[in-house]
Structure formats: C-alpha cells, structure tokens
Amino acid sequence: MNPTSSQNSRPDPEPTRSIVVISGGMSDTSSSRMLADRLAQKALDRLKGQGIPAAVSIIELRPLAANIAQAIVSGFPDEDLQAAIDRLAAAAAVIATTPIYKAGISGLFKAFMDILDNDLLIAVPVVLAATGGSARHALVIDDQLRPLFAFMRTLTTPTSLFAAPEDWGDRALTTRIERAATELAAMVTTGIRSAITDDAWGQYQHTFAGSARPATAAPEVAFDTDLMRLATGGTFAARA
C-alpha cells in the first residue's frame, strides 16, 4: 500500500508518493480547496527538491455527497466511493480540509470519515485544515478534527491550518502553509509510516479483509492470539 521503501534498502526507481487531499468544500473552487492546493503545492515542491517523486490526488466530497449518504444507509460504499477509499489506502500523506459550518466541521466531511475502515489511515501523515467565516472558529480544528484523526491513528502534523477571511490577505498564512508543508514532507521523506506499519501492523485492531492492509504487512490473520486459542478448544486466560 504505502510504496515507501524501508530505511535500509531503497529500491530503484523511487516510487511516486501520493498526497491525497480530502476536500469538504462546497463551491467551485472553494476556499477550503484553495487552502489545500496551496499546501499541496508547497509539499510537492519540498519533496521534489529532495528528489522524491510525488503527485497530488484530490478527493472532492461534493460530487460524492449522494454516494456517501447512500453508503451510510446501505452499509457499503458504491464503486465511486470505493475508488476514493482505495486512493486513501494508497496515500503516502493526506491533507484534510473542511469548511466550518455552524461552529463545527462540515457534516459531509464527517459522514465521509464515518464510512472509512478504522484502520485505513494508521500512521499516515496528515495536515488538518479548515476555513471559516470568522476567526472565532479557529479552535474547531483542535476541538473536532484532531480527535477525529487521533481516532483514525494518523500522524497529524504539529501545524494545522485555519483560514478566516482576514487570513487570506495575511502573509502569516503563507508562513503557516510553508511550515505545515515542511512538516508533512519531512514525515513522508523519513518513511515513518512504513517504519511503524511494517513492524507493528499486526498489533492494531483491523477490519477483516478491509481496505487498509498494506502490501508489506504481515499475514492478516494472526493465529497466535488468546481468541484463536479459544477458537481451537483452548482456554481463555483472563476475563477483562
């Protein structure tokens, strides 16, 4: 899944890292998307500067809105939505961006996150970004996006990006974008995700035959567990 090579041996040619943007913006082009685009371009520049091929892939949620609603009701994603999920499963990094509505993240953005496998984004570097009509919503990222991505067990960059109307004319936003891009590129460059998942993938709880399993991971079903011993007539040591 994550094509990043191990730290010791770097295969040739260098695989292209996919930076996937999840954009919850509603208009075309939305300010949420503009914020993500600026960040994505900076991250690409940094990676390319270090000789690491990378490409950006955009998941716009607006055209998937009906698919997302249907998946929630039907219990499974359709082909278009699965294609988006597959892109996330192959992502080396994610930029998540949403507008702020009614003092919170967009319902569509949350609905999309709700249909993802819990283990889809384990140890993926992520920048959190949001746009709002007022600086008074600046903490929505920390109140809502950060816990959501903590649940998904992503590696969230120290810098997140919030843009209120006044920020678009402020040089400080560009500085923050550059800082976030540096952080994201550094996490991709070091291969921290595969360093974690190569070793510890089996130690996370997984959806059986879900969308998340990296090609490099150990066999999906671990038979050396208490539950598997119980399944095969053994005894279950401790009751929680």
């Binding site: 219990g75 499974f76 059986f208 079903v221 038979f223 598997m228 399944a231 095969t232 007539g233």
Partner: peptide
C-alpha cells in the same frame, strides 16, 4: 460475517461455515 475466529473454530472442529450472504456487496 466478519470474524476470522469463528471461521477458525468451524475449521478446527471440521464443522460447516455459513455466510448469510445478504446486506453486503
């Protein structure tokens, strides 16, 4: 419908395994 331990138990005992095959792709 999603639990490998149940498949394992069915296999261990040589019992049958049944998938309800509804409400999923």
């Amino acid at each position: 419908i999603r639990t490998p331990e149940i498949a394992e138990q069915a296999a261990y005992y040589g019992n049958g395994f049944f998938a309800n095959n509804i409400l999923a792709p």
